[in-house]
Design a protein around this nucleic acid. Structure first.
Lengths: 228, 228
DNA sequence: CGGCTATAATGTTAATTAAGGTTAATGAGA
DNA sequence: TCTCATTAACCTTAATTAACATTATAGCCG
């Protein structure tokens, strides 16, 4: 029986990515963009957990949360808040089954929070997280975040590792730039976009010993991680 | 000779109910509402088991537990936590002499937990070194709070041991920084945050003899205790 | 149609900022 | 006084932002 997530988000593209990503990890997602319509969806879907964007048309996330609390006093609620919002206000809600995540957030972070809130034991959440992947001359240890080649071992940072995972998961397929941005950075704004460029450059540099591995740019669209 | 329970609870009504219920089942109950006064009662009453509400005036349950552990490293401690604190990280406390129960709880549940805790403790007393965890070259003795390696034995402080338990309970998974802070320190303020850094450094230092154990930093998110 | 140019997208490297690492000093309680 | 938790000071590294370089493609001109 899948875990049901009620996800309230008005940004269409981000919503789509997050939804798909949650579904790919086995969650059942019920989505709504309009704060005023959440309550009826709540009643119908009977979710296990709610993820609410605070900035919504018609009704903000806090109001929605209050209404939900009238129906169910125990369900965990996770708020998504913009960076600009004062954390004090949010912290007030950080009690009573509530948690909050600052936007932008990575999928990894959202999954961690959801798992925590639901006390999912040992949730490997469908990740490839276990051992290691081999790519050309390299061995990529997911858990340890290291990349080993005949020449030695290199430690990857979290972002580097996440990007490489994503590339590998979509090897020989085109991945949309915006999709990467939304998954790793939580939005596809201009600055994060440049950020991705920087990380792609780093991964390319790390993988340059093996010419059979190549991250090909599809200008205006995304990348393709070519490997035989 | 009745079993003596030290019960620390500040909600008057709940406290009364639980006390009477325990007494009706033959326990002798010593009760206190003020975290700051628990220690002297502990000394005087010499309980067999402690049941501590985590949210207390003056001193929270974790602090109280820490003080009790200084006096008695083996006594079972059961925490009562509010819904908000129920993350799977709390499960980390379900090893060593500690257990936890989420509020609201039934009396049945409390009785069961108390019996279990006492049974386990009694089973252990004949056999001093039983429950320990092995990590790489190390052996972590929960009750004794020691870490043994081929090179020798090291005593851990309460905080060190609690942190290591949390890490172990969540091995190979990302643990949110804020979760650790809330569980070990009761809040995630800036100073406590730096405090966590200090303890992570210590644990890393203690574990450095075995390179297969690594506490990986996920900047801005938390840690992952990688072990094979 | 082939070459030229403008421009937006991406590559590259460096500078900045923020998070965390490390170690020592302080303080508080046995 | 000794131990441990906390605070502080200073150091290192990851992530972000910025600056400038390069490349691909559409539109233009002949």
């Amino acid at each position: 029986m899948p875990i049901k997530v009620l996800y309230v988000e008005d940004e269409e593209f981000l919503g789509k990515i997050v939804r798909e990503s949650l579904e790919s990890r086995g969650f059942e997602v019920f989505m709504e963009a309009d704060g005023a319509k959440v309550l009826s969806l709540f009643r119908n879907s009977k979710p296990d957990i709610c993820v609410l964007d605070v900035m919504l048309p018609n009704k903000d996330g806090f109001e929605v949360a209050e209404e939900i609390r009238h129906i169910d006093t125990a369900i965990p609620i996770i708020f998504l808040t913009a960076k600009t919002q004062t954390t004090d206000v949010v912290k007030g809600f950080n009690i009573g089954g509530n948690d909050y995540i600052r936007k932008p957030f990575s999928m990894e972070e959202l999954i961690v929070r959801i798992s925590n809130a639901l006390k999912i034991k040992n949730a490997d959440t469908g990740n490839i997280n276990t051992d290691s992947i081999s790519m050309g001359n390299y061995q990529f240890h997911l858990n340890r975040q290291t990349l080993t080649s005949p020449d030695g071992e290199r430690k990857l940072s979290f972002r580097e590792a996440e990007l490489l995972k994503l590339l590998y998961a979509n090897k020989n397929k085109i991945i949309d730039r915006r999709e990467i941005l939304n998954l790793l950075w939580g939005n596809d704004s201009f600055f994060n976009s440049r950020n991705l460029d920087v990380y792609v450059a780093r991964i390319r540099n790390y993988l340059k010993e093996d010419p059979s591995l190549e991250i090909i740019t599809i200008k205006g669209v995304g990348y393709r991680f070519a490997m035989s």
